[in-house]
C-alpha cells in the first residue's frame, strides 16, 4: 500500500514537473506548449551525448544540457512565438504542436528509434528506509519536484520578474503600459520551461530508457495536471500532478494496472465538466 503511494508520488512529481513547464509558458505567453514533451526528450538526449560522447560526468552533463535548454527555450520563443504573439491561442498551440512533431522526427533521424540506457545517475538502485523501498530515480524525482516548486513559486511570488509575468498573463496591454517588457518575460518563461523539461526528460530516461518516442503518454498527463490545476496556478498544477500520480497508482492497486493510463484522461473530462476552473483555480476558469 505504502509502496503504491510512493510510486504514485514519484510519477505525480514527474507530471507536476511537466505541468509546471506548461503553466509557465501558458501564463506568461498564452501558449499551450505542446512541444514541452519533445523538448524534454531532446534535452535528455543532449545530456546523454554530453555524458557518452564528450565523456563528462553525468551531473556535469546534465548541468551543461540545462544551459543548452535555456538557450534553446529562449530561441524558440524569440524565433517562433514572439513574432506570432498577436495571433490567437489556437494558432500558437498549433505552432507548438508542429514543433513537437518536428523535434521527435529529428531525434528519430539523428538517434534512431532504438531504446538506449541512460547513464547511471546514482550509485545505488534503491533507497531503503526502514521497511520501505523506493527506487533511487523515483526518490530524486520527488526531490526535484519539491525543489523546483519552491524555486518557481518563490520566483513568481516574490520577485519583480514574477510579478511582471503575472501581469503579462493577466493583461498584456496593461503590462506594457506599466513598462513590463513582454519579450523579456516570455523569454524567461520559455527558458525556465525548457530547464524544467530537461529535468523531466532526464528523470524519465533514468527510470526507463531513452528513446525519441518516450514522452508519448507522459506529456498527456502533464496536460492533465495543468487542467486539473486550473491552467494558471503553479500550486494547482503541482497538486494536479500529484493527485493524478496517486490516483493512477491506486487505480492500478485496486483495479488493474491496465486502467492506470486512462485515469488522467478521465480526470481531464471530469474536471472540465464539473469544475472547469480547476481544483485550485480562481474564478476565471479557462481564460483565452
Amino acid at each position: 500500500m505504502i509502496a503504491y503511494l510512493l510510486t504514485g508520488l514519484s510519477y505525480g512529481s514527474l507530471y507536476a514537473l511537466l505541468g509546471l513547464g506548461l503553466v509557465l509558458t501558458f501564463r506568461s505567453t498564452n501558449v499551450l506548449n505542446f512541444s514541452q514533451g519533445g523538448m524534454s526528450m531532446l534535452m535528455a538526449f543532449i545530456a546523454f551525448e554530453f555524458a557518452t560522447q564528450a565523456g563528462l560526468p553525468i551531473l556535469v552533463a546534465i548541468a551543461a544540457s540545462l544551459v543548452v535548454a535555456g538557450v534553446l527555450g529562449g530561441a524558440v520563443y524569440n524565433i517562433l512565438i514572439y513574432p506570432l504573439r498577436n495571433r490567437d491561442q489556437d494558432t500558437l498551440a498549433f505552432v507548438a504542436l508542429s514543433l513537437e512533431l518536428s523535434i521527435i522526427g529529428l531525434a528519430a533521424l539523428i538517434w534512431g528509434a532504438e531504446s538506449r540506457v541512460f547513464p547511471r545517475l546514482f550509485a545505488t538502485d534503491r533507497i531503503e528506509i526502514a521497511d520501505l523501498i523506493i527506487s533511487t530515480p523515483h526518490f530524486w524525482t520527488i526531490v526535484c519536484g519539491v525543489v523546483s516548486v519552491c524555486v518557481i513559486a518563490t520566483l513568481m511570488r516574490w520577485t519583480d520578474l514574477g510579478l511582471a509575468m503575472r501581469v503579462a498573463a493577466e493583461n498584456p496591454e496593461v503590462a506594457q503600459l506599466l513598462g513590463v517588457n513582454l519579450r523579456v518575460v516570455g523569454t524567461t518563461a520559455w527558458m525556465a520551461a525548457a530547464c524544467l523539461g530537461t529535468l523531466t526528460g532526464v528523470l524519465l530516461a533514468s527510470t526507463g530508457f531513452l528513446q525519441p518516442y518516450m514522452m508519448g503518454l507522459v506529456v498527456l498527463k502533464g496536460f492533465a495536471a495543468l487542467v486539473v490545476g486550473g491552467m494558471h496556478s503553479v500550486m494547482g498544477v503541482i497538486a494536479g500532478g500529484l493527485l493524478l500520480g496517486i490516483l493512477e497508482s491506486f487505480a492500478a492497486y485496486e483495479l488493474n494496472p491496465l486502467v492506470q493510463d486512462s485515469v488522467g484522461l478521465a480526470l481531464i473530462i471530469l474536471v472540465l465538466l464539473i469544475r472547469p476552473q480547476g481544483l485550485i483555480g480562481g474564478g476565471g476558469g479557462w481564460r483565452g
Binding site: A3, Y4, T7, Y11, S135, H138, L204, T207, G208, F209, M214, G216, L217, V218, E248, S249, A252, Y253, P257, Q260, D261
Partner: peptide
C-alpha cells in the same frame, strides 16, 4: 502499449 510506467504492475 506505449506506456513506460511499469512500477505498479511490478508491485502487483
Amino acid at each position: 502499449r506505449g506506456t513506460n510506467e511499469f512500477e505498479t504492475s511490478v508491485l502487483k
